[in-house]
Simulated assay, not measured.
Amino acid sequence: MQNRTGAVRAGSAEEVSPGATLAEKVEWLIRNLWPADADAPRNNVETAAAIARATGEDISSTTVWKLRTGRQENPQLKTLTALATFFGVPIGYFGFPGEAGPIDDDLTLKALRREVEHGTIRPEVLRALVDLSPEARWVVDEMILGAAAADRQRHPRRGDDRET
């Protein structure tokens, strides 16, 4: 399945665990919460330009590349603030103590709602899921997790080959 940026994703709204690296969190935002009013980026140059236009904070394509590939684990607060502003997430998403779990859950639900709004996930599917018995829901859960794992094996993420 592809999202609005054309990126292949494992599921409708991949989860980012609280222990995820900064690179994984930035990549998740780009793939799942790219603002609807901004053109989808094809590379890090366009990503940096969109963030700069929306926030007024000058972020270079090299900084975006370093963040996405894990080569910059300790960016300046102004960079994190610009990212948080652009993607509409709390600054705590980037790993400030005590805030990761609930924030990650909220952002996963936000991404899921966007997928429903864009027609990638049909609302009737979600309604049917809620109406299932606990046993049937467990079967569906296992099928989704299995499909996501298989998709990740077929389409591994490679952060080191993106354009700068």
Rank of each mutant, 00 (worst) to 15 (best):
L129N: 02
G88V: 08
P102W: 06
P75Y: 10
L77P: 00
G101S: 08
P75V: 12
R152D: 05
G101P: 00
Q153N: 04
T108K: 12
F94S: 08
D131Y: 05
A84C: 04
V125F: 05
M143V: 13
G95S: 04
G119R: 00
D105P: 01
K78G: 01
N74G: 00
L126S: 04
D161R: 10
E73A: 15
V125I: 10
R122H: 11
A82P: 06
G70K: 02
F86T: 07
G92M: 00
Q72V: 12
A136T: 11
R152H: 07
R127H: 02
E142M: 15
T69L: 04
T108N: 02
Y93F: 15
P75C: 07
E163Y: 08
R157S: 09
A84G: 03
D151L: 06
R157D: 06
V116Q: 00
A100E: 12
K110M: 08
G146Q: 10
D161Q: 11
L129C: 04
A147Y: 02
E142G: 03
S133P: 03
E142S: 11
Q72C: 14
G98K: 00
F87Y: 07
A149C: 04
L129D: 01
R71K: 14
A150C: 05
T69M: 05
K66P: 00
P123N: 03
Q153Y: 04
R157E: 10
P97S: 12
L77S: 06
R157W: 09
A149M: 09
G92F: 01
D105C: 04
A136E: 10
A128L: 13
L145I: 07
Q72L: 15
A84H: 05
A150V: 12
D151Y: 08
